[in-house]
Simulated scan of single mutants.
Amino acid sequence: MAGRANSIVAARALGLLAAMFLSMFSAMTVLATDEVRAEPIRGAGSTFAAPVIARWAHLYGQVRADGGDFVSPDWTVDYELVGSLAGLMRLEQPELDFAASDVPVTPEELERRGHRQFPFVLGGIAVVVNLDGVKVGELRLPGAALADIYLGRVTKWNDPALTAANPGLTLPDLPIAPVYRKDGSGSTFALTEYLSAASPEWRERLGAATLIAWPVGTGAEGTQDLIRAVQATKGAIAYAEFGQVARTSMPFVALENASGRFVAPGPEGFQAAIDSVDWSQTRDFHATLANRPGEAAYPITAATFAIVPSRRSRARIDRVHDFFRLAFDQGGRDARALGYVPLPASLVERIKQYWTEEQNTRG
């Protein structure tokens, strides 16, 4: 009897061990599957950069397929156009691989949250108007006058502050209808950075932010709604990413820069602004691009940054880097076709070194 009892105990022990082993094996299998499962690269944020991200995502799939018919989910990019602020907020979600923001995150905040960032495309914010008889780039706006429009001080298009800057242009006796982004937007940050530099009152009352309490005007959700609002309203004025504005044929204005010159948005003005930045003196590529010095510099130049959580798995971070590496190496033509400016080669090399340093830190 004793022998039989011992046999039963031993059998139960073996059964328990087997169950424990199977449970551990199943858990390890789930973890391994989660690590290697084919999934899209997931990003969210900037509407400013959305067109070029979409074009690069198509290019990425084509290059990685290498002429074949099979396209793995690993070679796709799932990007949500939610605005810079919402993109940064969603970065706390574990399934997101990167956020795209037109506002660089401070090095201190990056360190606190365990994130890294780098710029990936350059462009600018155009100020657009709906005025009959005004051609593209013909209307000139001083920064202080633009601030006064959004402060509610300048309310008519034939206001002396505007006619003085446009002596050869007949401006109508028409109310100005300001339109702004009511969602958290990097475009709003870029505009308000410029207004803060041009107007002491704006700087003291409102400052620069992705989301502000606008004194006057009508709010629009996202770039497309903003553009539609301007197109539907005579006398309207607003701001949006240059490439998207250029594709609508809406007239945009020339803005006064730090050197007192009126410059229309475009690749030359964006490049001049970027060239004035010494990126070697920045930390985590944090730099202000508004109202840069130089006669040719466009004053609302902007860069879009990828913010990547460094606490994700190395495989996920490397996939994000792989996508942007291909964009840097082969996506310049696409960026230019959409009205952006590709990063200078020297800046791209600095970013790739930044990635290498991160990899070495992670081991």
Rank of each mutant, 00 (worst) to 15 (best):
A99L: 09
L171H: 10
T170C: 05
Q359W: 14
T223W: 04
A208R: 07
I212V: 09
S280L: 09
A54N: 00
L88R: 04
I149R: 02
I351P: 03
A86L: 13
E92L: 13
I237H: 00
E357L: 13
L169V: 08
V127K: 05
F323C: 07
P265H: 08
R283T: 06
D278H: 01
E35I: 09
E39C: 07
D74M: 14
F98I: 02
A236F: 09
V121M: 03
S23R: 14
D322Y: 00
N6Y: 06
P119Q: 10
D284S: 00
G124D: 14
E35S: 15
L16Y: 15
P265R: 10
D148A: 01
T29W: 14
I8R: 12
D148M: 01
W355T: 09
T106I: 03
A19Y: 13
T356I: 13
F118H: 05
A198I: 03
Y150L: 02
G363H: 10
V128Q: 08
D275F: 06
A54E: 04
A32I: 11
P265A: 10
V253W: 06
R140K: 13
R350A: 12
E193I: 00
F70S: 14
S26A: 15
G331C: 05
G269Y: 10
A208V: 02
R140Y: 07
I212Q: 04
L110D: 08
T282G: 05
I237M: 07
L226F: 08
F262C: 08
V308G: 05
W56S: 03
N360C: 12
F118P: 00
W355F: 07
E358V: 00
F118K: 01
F252S: 10
A345N: 12
V245G: 01
G207K: 10
T288I: 12
A32M: 12
Y79N: 07
G207V: 08
P344E: 01
G207P: 05
R228Y: 13
E256N: 08
Q231P: 02
G363C: 00
E138P: 02
L289W: 04
V245A: 09
A18I: 14
S72Y: 11
K352G: 06
A229F: 08
G143H: 10
N360E: 15
L131W: 08
S84T: 07
A303H: 05
A50V: 01
E221P: 02
R292L: 06
F252T: 06
G219H: 04
A99I: 05
L255F: 02
V63Y: 02
L14E: 15
R333W: 04
V320I: 11
A232Q: 13
Q359V: 10
L326H: 00
L85Q: 15
Y298C: 01
T76V: 06
R37I: 13
G294S: 09
G266F: 05
L343S: 07
T301E: 02
V9S: 13
L81D: 15
A144C: 12
R42M: 10
A254V: 09
K182I: 11
L139H: 05
R203C: 10
A213V: 14
D69G: 13
Q281E: 14
W157C: 05
A272Q: 06
E221K: 10
R312I: 04
L17G: 15
G61Q: 07
A315V: 11
E358L: 11
W279P: 01
A273E: 11
L17M: 15
L16W: 14
S280W: 00
A2E: 14
P40W: 04
L59T: 01
G61I: 01
P160R: 02
D148V: 03
L162A: 08
Q330P: 03
G260N: 08
P267F: 12
